[in-house]
C-alpha cells in the first residue's frame, strides 16, 4: 500500500522529467542515431555503470574545489560586509560596487582570472570564491541591517554595549540571509568550477568532459554531464538542508 502511494507520489513529482527521458530514448531508437551523434539515456547509463569509479575521482575533486571556493568566497564576502557595516564611509564606498558586480555576468570574468593567476586548480578555487563573494557580500550586508522589530531600542534601553549589540543582535540577525545566499550560490559554485575546469583544462569533471567531447566519446561526455548535474543537485540539497535546519533553530 505504502509502496503504491510512494510510487504515485514519485510520478506526481517527476512525470515531466520521466517524459523527457523516455521521449529521448524513443527518439534515438526510432531515428537510429549513431551513438557518436547522440546516445540514448540507456547507453549513457550503461557506460556509467560499466566504470563508475572512473568518475568518482574527478567528481570528488570538483565537489571539493566548489566547496572550498564557496567557503572562501563566503568568508571574504561576509567579512567585507561586516567591515562595511561598521563604517558608514566604507559602506557608502562599497555598496554601489557590490550592486554593479551583482548586475554583471561575473562568469565572464573566468577567462580574465585564468590569465591572471595561471591554469591551476588554485585558480579554480579563486574563480569559485569570486563568483560566491558578491552574493555573500550583498545578502549578509542586508541581513546585518534587518534587525527584529524593536530590538534595537531594547538593546539601548537595557544599556547593551556596541560589542554586545553586534554579537548578540546584529550577527544573529544576518544568519537567515547568510543561509539564503548559501543555498542560492551552492549550485552556481559547482557550475563555476566545472566551467573553469573546462576552459583551463585542469583536472576535475570539466576536464573529463572536455576530453570525452574531444574524443567524440559522446556517451562518456553525457555521463560526465549527468555526474556534474548530480554534484550540483547534491550541493544544492546540502545547502537547502543546512538552511532549513538553521532556520528552524533561528526563527
Amino acid at each position: 500500500m505504502t509502496a503504491v502511494v510512494s510510487i504515485s507520489n514519485l510520478l506526481r513529482r517527476y512525470w515531466a522529467v520521466a517524459l523527457i527521458v523516455v521521449g529521448w530514448q524513443i527518439w534515438v531508437s526510432a531515428a537510429g542515431l549513431s551513438s557518436i551523434v547522440l546516445p540514448g539515456p540507456l547507453a549513457v547509463a550503461t557506460d556509467f555503470a560499466g566504470d563508475p569509479l572512473s568518475y568518482a575521482g574527478p567528481a570528488g575533486l570538483t565537489f571539493l574545489v566548489a566547496i572550498a571556493g564557496l567557503l572562501l568566497g563566503f568568508l571574504l564576502g561576509a567579512g567585507l560586509a561586516i567591515l562595511s557595516w561598521s563604517s558608514r564611509i566604507l559602506n557608502g564606498l562599497l555598496t554601489p560596487l557590490g550592486l554593479i558586480f551583482t548586475s554583471i555576468p561575473v562568469v565572464t570574468l573566468i577567462p580574465i582570472i585564468a590569465r591572471l593567476l595561471g591554469y591551476d586548480v588554485r585558480t579554480v578555487v579563486a574563480i569559485v570564491s569570486l563568483i560566491c563573494f558578491f552574493p555573500a557580500f550583498v545578502y549578509v550586508g542586508a541581513g546585518l541591517r534587518a534587525l527584529p522589530p524593536g530590538s534595537d531600542d531594547l538593546f539601548r534601553v537595557f544599556g547593551g554595549s556596541q560589542l554586545q549589540r553586534f554579537v548578540r543582535l546584529v550577527l544573529p540577525s544576518a544568519v537567515p540571509n547568510l543561509m539564503l545566499a548559501f543555498r542560492l550560490t551552492a549550485p552556481e559554485a559547482v557550475l563555476a568550477a566545472v566551467v573553469a575546469e573546462f576552459l583551463m583544462g585542469t583536472d576535475g569533471l570539466g576536464y573529463l568532459f572536455r576530453k570525452a567531447a574531444g574524443e567524440f566519446d559522446t556517451e562518456r561526455a553525457l555521463a560526465t554531464s549527468l555526474i556534474a548535474t548530480i554534484t550540483s543537485v547534491a550541493c544544492f540539497g546540502l545547502a537547502l538542508a543546512a538552511e532549513r535546519r538553521v532556520l528552524r533553530r533561528w526563527t
Partner: peptide, 29 residues
C-alpha cells in the same frame, strides 16, 4: 542597566528560546 522596558511589539529575539530571551538583560549588563 537599571531601566526595564516592554514595547507593543514584543521584540523577543527569534533565535533565542523564552528562557534565553528573559535572561538577555543579564548578558547586556
Amino acid at each position: 542597566h537599571r531601566l526595564g522596558v516592554a514595547f507593543q511589539d514584543h521584540a523577543l529575539l527569534p533565535w533565542l528560546d523564552i528562557e534565553a530571551n528573559v535572561a538577555l538583560p543579564f548578558h547586556l549588563a
